[in-house]
Design a protein around this nucleic acid. Structure first.
Lengths: 170, 170
DNA sequence: ATCATTTCCATGAAATTTCATCTTTTTGTT
DNA sequence: AACAAAAAGATGAAATTTCATGGAAATGAT
């Protein structure tokens, strides 16, 4: 750390030692970027009366006509037992519906309800607006480049077998 | 480099509905990328006898000569009370040292110890190797571009005031 | 067919995290 | 100078997550 200097640094995080290991470390950069970008949208999610995980579930279900608990668990980066419980609560609130799959009755398919859809309609619009605001400073080309590189990265690194967790940076 | 040629379908997560909302949603892409890239390195961290958070603390301290609990909390995306407890345990294990700052005795500075350094030396090398493996498929130019865009993103979005949390994708 | 194995999800107990609060020290105000 | 307000970190109680397991169904082998 920078000792003496009473004023310390300016900001809070980017400030300190410039030659820090993590500043050149991709997992760190991804984790920070993810965390900061996401956090900015939290207030809007909570203002809509949803928990963060609930929003993630709903966003994941959007455009799909139902996902199993297992897939949802990967999409939302939430471990299966945690997700099961969240979905249970959401079903109680009539935001999603759970049904057994006919062809494989072990599976539980989760679908968004009309109420759930109404609830998230506005939120999805805000989410996209948020994304625009984030990408705008980069210009269309760079923005597109960033997105496609992230997609390529995902393609090269398949999701993990057993459910998902959160994302630290190692 | 664009598109995602490799892997095809049959995977696990990328499979289903192609037109899912989240597939075009930056916060989702960042969270997934972060999660997958990080998780690959977990085994190595645990093999070294460290918890993930402990590794994050040590990696954050590398190249710095000490950070306050508050800054560490941001760097590691861990809330302050959680981090305080982790650091306490690490001090007990003689991996880090905690000292009161002379100029502001409210602050606690955390420094890596020699033992901590020995412990993470090999791990940091492995971490960089891991990063190389991840970036290699993109080629040097694209890799550099990705890194610098992430850095720019961070510069535009300062860390949050009160400690850090994990990073979902909203 | 039968039985062993694997997969998917639910669930309770245990572990971890988070919130709220407290203490100590610094900063700002009058 | 005195006192109020703010900031940093520690800590215990409460809430959440995670692990381990269980039941039910599908898959595979003999």
């Amino acid at each position: 750390m920078n000792e003496d200097a009473p004023g310390r640094e300016a900001d809070e995080g980017e400030t300190a030692a410039a030659g820090r290991f993590v500043d050149n470390y991709l997992p760190y950069l991804l984790a920070q970027a993810s965390s900061r970008v996401s956090r900015e949208f939290h207030r809007e999610v909570e203002a809509a009366g949803l928990s963060v995980t609930e929003w993630r579930v709903l966003a994941s279900l959007e455009g799909s006509d139902g996902e199993s608990i297992g897939v949802l668990s990967q999409l939302t980066l939430t471990k299966q037992p945690t997700l099961s419980k969240v979905v249970l609560r959401m079903e109680a609130n009539d935001i999603v519906a759970r049904t057994r799959v006919r062809s494989d009755r072990r599976q539980t398919v989760v679908r968004i309800t009309r109420k759930g859809n109404r609830l998230t309609e506005a939120l999805r619009a805000r989410a996209l607006a948020h994304q625009q605001r984030i990408l705008a400073p980069f210009g269309p080309d760079n923005a597109e480049k960033l997105i496609s590189m992230l997609r390529a990265l995902l393609a090269l690194h398949p999701p993990e077998e057993g459910g998902g967790e959160e994302s630290p940076f190692d």
